[in-house]
Design a protein around this nucleic acid. Structure first.
Length: 189
DNA sequence: ATTTTCAAT
């Protein structure tokens, strides 16, 4: 079952003030080894339900089956709790590669937000976290949305917003170790 | 300048 194109656009829109996105979509591709020389791909999508975040629902969906690599595209980046749960899950699955693409950053405005810490934890656990760019939207449209035959049409500012969010994520993941005073000293000010 | 956020009604 595909994501309705209207839902996709609404929930994955990477606008600055995404009012009313009180729901999170997760589109996934799970790659598994089914034999010595063959792989299988599972495609699908999930939404949060009954107060359970979609990442935890995904882990439940995955179950104990052995996977090789997982790529997902989420409308929000994970909360602190989900990041911790995912990191813990991955520590028990050393051969599993997880790549997470996100449309928007969830509660990452404050320097000391737990969500920022969570993203760094994921990075430390070997997860590749990336902000969705045009090509990722295009791929999702072709892969998960019910209007595959139509062309994905970017909204105004998609690229600009993606770049802004990407820079923000980079600042979160590569925190400058140097504090302001040291920076001034280095600059001779 | 400021605006939102895996709801709660």
């Amino acid at each position: 079952m595909d994501v309705h194109f209207m839902n996709f656009i609404y929930h994955y829109k990477n606008m600055r003030w995404a009012k009313g996105r009180n729901e999170t979509y997760l589109c996934f591709v799970v790659k598994r080894r089914v034999g010595p020389n063959s792989l299988t791909f599972d495609f699908g999508h999930l939404r949060n339900r009954n107060g359970c975040h979609v990442e935890l629902l995904f882990l439940r969906y995955l179950g104990r089956r052995l996977s090789y690599s997982i790529t997902w595209f989420c409308s929000w980046s994970p909360c602190a709790n989900c990041s911790a749960a995912l990191s813990q899950f991955l520590s028990r699955m050393p051969n599993l590669r997880l790549r997470i693409f996100v449309a928007r950053l969830y509660f990452c405005d404050m320097e000391d937000s737990h969500e920022r810490e969570g993203l760094r934890l994921l990075q430390k656990a070997g997860v590749q976290v990336t902000v969705m760019s045009y090509k990722d939207y295009y791929y999702c449209w072709q892969t998960f949305v019910d209007r595959k035959k139509s062309h994905f049409k970017a909204w105004e500012d998609l690229h600009q917003n993606s770049v802004r969010l990407s820079r923000k994520l980079n600042r979160i993941l590569q925190p400058c170790e140097m504090d302001l005073r040291d920076a001034f000293k280095l600059l001779g000010l």
